[in-house]
Each structure stands twice: as C-alpha cells, then as structure tokens.
Design a protein around this nucleic acid. Structure first.
Length: 420
DNA sequence: TCTGGGGTCCTAGGACCC
DNA sequence: TCTGGGGTCCTAGGACCC
C-alpha cells in the first residue's frame, strides 16, 4: 500500500502558523519578485483567485476581499518541510520525499496498533497538526497514482484520511476528470480528449496500444497504475542532482551590462552554494538573459561555457559567466531576468583533472576560501560575505519582496517574542 | 507599469561503431 | 528486382511534476 501525505495549501498554512489572526480569512503567497499567485487559502480559492495568476490582474479581487498577501519565504517553508519529514520518519523508513509539501510512504501491512489504514492516516494528520500546525491530507492506494488520487479525494471530502481500496474504485474513477490524474498535463489531456477519453475510468479501460501511441511510455504507465499495477517505485534514496539552476526575475528591468553582471554574480553565488552543499563540482556552465516573456518582442540570449577543469568555486564560475555574458549581451535591450544552469555535475572525490592546466596550489586555495565563506554565512546569516559585485548599494536586479514575513524558525533575530 | 523558479524523464533522429 | 543487422552515444525538443 502506498500513502501520499500532502500538506494543505502548504505555503499559506506555514504563514498562518505564526499569524493565527488570519485563520479563516483569505490569504495568498506570491512567487519570487511578487509576480504571481503560487499558493491560496481555501477562502482565496473560493473567491476565484487562480493559481499562477499575475498579481496585477487579480488586484481588484485581492482588494475587494481584503486578502492577506505574503511574499514567498522559502527558508520558512523549507524548515517546516523538514520538521514534517522527521515526524513521518517516526511512522516508517519507507519514505520518499517527493516535493517540499508531499511525501510518499509504503506499507506491507497495517502497522500496529492501528486497525486500518484510515486510522493510521488520521493519526498522521493529528501528529503533524499538533507538532507543526500544518494540516495534511493522507491518501492510500495500491499505486502511487492511486494514492495521489486518494489524497485529492480526502481534500475534496474534507476528511484527513482516505483509503481508496475501501470504495468501489470504478465508481470513483468515473467521477475523475483525466486532467486531475497525476501524470496527465495539458497536452496529454487534449490528446485524450481527441480520443474521446475524458474520465479516469475511460483511460483505465482504453486499449494499451492506443494509449502507448498517443502518450508514449509515461502515459501507458499512468494507465497501468490506474489499474492497480505499480509502475513507479518508491525512491527512498536522495539522489545527487543532475543539474542545478539559479535564476531570478529582476525587481526592475535592466539594460546596463554592469547591472546584469551583478545579477549574474548573485545567480552564481546561489548556484555554487547549492553545488558545494551537495559536495559536487560542475564542468559545464549555461548562462542566460531574457526580456519580458509576456511581451511580443520576447528575446533570450544564452551561452554554454565548458570549463577546462571541474570546479565548485564561486569566484571562478563568476569569472567565466561574466565573460560569457559579454558575448551575448545586446545594448539597448530591456532585460527582466537572468540565470545560470550547472551541468555535468560530479562528486568532488571522483574528479578528472585536466592534464595540462591543473594547478593544485590554486585549487587548494580556492577550496579553503569557499569553505570559510560558507562557514561564515552559515553562522552569521545569509550572504554575510560575498563578492563585491553582488553588494553594490543600488541593486536594481534584486527581486521585489515587499510582503516578506520573518524567518521565524531559521534566523535568531526573527524568533517571535511571546508575552505571558 | 506589473506575469516564478527548479527539476526529471522520454523519444526521435543523427552520428558513429562492428 | 534485389541494397544487412545490431548496437551505443549524444542532443534537442517535448512532456510532465511541484
């Protein structure tokens, strides 16, 4: 049996833990740069605010209903996620961290002392709510796809726990639209529509050959999972990243190359930190700059930089990125976003050095510098030390975060005071 | 005026090998 | 008239997820 534990309105729920005054009131969380809606409370959904809507478009609704608005605070959400994971590990070690707000669990029998999976789910709900303040929905099913569906049904039926195997499956699948199935996105939905397949029940019973032809292997696997045949295993191991991306929209549009350099240096700083945290190095750097995607004259420029030898040094990567930038930069262009991607990631201990350009002394020096920088920032706060280029007094590239809540659980200075 | 960020997997086609 | 068979690796693009 698979279980999916899904946090309800996760980002909004995290904000509410420290703002009990907004319980029962409409609230949303915005994406980086305060651009669009990425999380909504039930009340916000009810008044018609859509996922992914640009803020300026739903401004009238937000004002009219006095909606509480938050900038994304990922250090807060990440910390809650960790706490929830650690609570789940008390139930079983057979656990896969699927996303920041979802985990899959696997059971071979109902664990003692519970009488049923439904009761187990209720207990998971109670524990997580009591210890963290976050409400979750727990769904049970014989495959991941069905467990995921079960957790959606739990939400729909306003119950903490839902065991799909306790109900006549086909009756339920007849009520499920194909686009609500995990693995069926917009494109697949429209292809299925053309085949006359609109419900989960129809997809389950369609001919395998037809589905394979229309949706390829991933679609076929989804079909089999609906039939109760597991195609997706539980990934309990945390795998090292294959790529690392760091990109940000600018607080204000930028044209000057000096400003772009500052933005790019910040992107690299973040990406290289992620790299070192996993003990990885990169040997391929991808740099991109973009204009506004929503405009007709949308443009993007990019360049691939292959490194002579693998590195995890912020300094070295910034140097390479900036010379790449000079090659792609166009004058008199209004850029709104920059970013970097790191590829060909390898573990530090299995490095393949270049025969000719390898300079051990220099590498040792860089390594010690980066270790010191990471340590200081970890101890004294984010970005306490960094490259001068990212530290200018005016940083027009810096994302808007006008409604940022405190980092209640991850910064000493932000811990709430309680008076009693 | 104003529209996020970070990932993975699969497939088809091309290039190459014997 | 008839033009082999089997394989790997790489890349770009498309699809999905949160």
């Amino acid at each position: 049996m698979f279980a999916l534990v899904d946090c309800n309105n996760f980002f909004v729920s995290c904000e509410r833990v420290f703002r009990p005054d907004i319980t029962g009131k409409p609230a949303i969380v915005m994406s980086n740069n305060d651009g669009c809606v990425i999380a909504r409370s039930e009340e916000a959904k009810a008044i018609g605010i859509k996922m992914g809507d640009p803020i300026f478009k739903c401004k009238p609704l937000l004002d009219a209903f006095n909606v509480h608005i938050f900038s994304a605070n990922f250090s807060l959400y990440g910390d809650f996620s960790k706490r929830i994971t650690s609570l789940l590990s008390e139930t079983t070690n057979d656990i896969e961290l699927y996303s920041i707000d979802e985990s899959f669990l696997r059971f071979f029998e109902v664990p003692a002392p519970f009488q049923s999976y439904t009761a187990l789910g209720q207990s998971i709900y109670d524990t997580i709510l009591r210890c963290t303040g976050i409400p979750v929905s727990v769904g049970f099913g014989p495959t991941k796809t069905l467990a995921k569906l079960a957790s959606q049904l739990a939400k729909k039926n306003k119950t903490p726990s839902f065991d799909l195997t306790k109900y006549p499956i086909d009756t339920i699948l007849k009520t499920v639209d194909t686009q609500d199935i995990w693995g069926i996105g917009r494109r697949f939905k429209s292809r299925l529509d053309k085949l006359g397949i609109h419900t989960a029940f129809q997809l389950k019973n369609a001919s395998e050959g037809m589905i394979k032809q229309a949706l390829n292997l991933p679609g076929l696997q989804t079909q089999l999972e609906l039939r109760g045949i597991p195609c997706h295993n539980l990934d309990t191991q945390e795998k090292p990243s294959k790529s690392i991306i760091s990109s940000r929209s600018f607080g204000k549009p930028i044209s000057a190359i000096e400003d772009l350099k500052g933005a790019l240096a910040s992107n690299i700083t973040l990406a290289a930190e992620k790299l070192r945290k996993q003990g990885l190095t990169t040997s391929t750097l991808f740099v991109f700059i973009k204009t506004n995607k929503a405009h007709d004259d949308y443009m993007k420029q990019s360049i691939v930089v292959n490194l002579p030898s693998p590195t995890d040094s912020t300094q070295r990567l910034v140097g390479l990125a900036l010379s790449g930038l000079e090659k792609i930069y166009k004058k008199n262009t209004t850029y709104t976003k920059s970013g970097v991607m790191l590829f060909n990631l390898a573990h530090q201990d299995s490095l393949q050095y270049s025969l000719f350009t390898h300079d051990l002394t220099k590498e040792e020096h860089e390594k010690r510098l980066m270790t010191a920088v990471d340590l200081i920032n970890q101890k004294l706060g984010k970005n306490m030390v960094g490259l001068a280029r990212t530290k200018g007094k005016i940083r027009p590239w810096e994302s808007k975060q006008n409604k940022l809540s405190p980092s209640y659980t991850t910064e000493w200075s932000d811990i709430p005071n309680v008076k009693c």
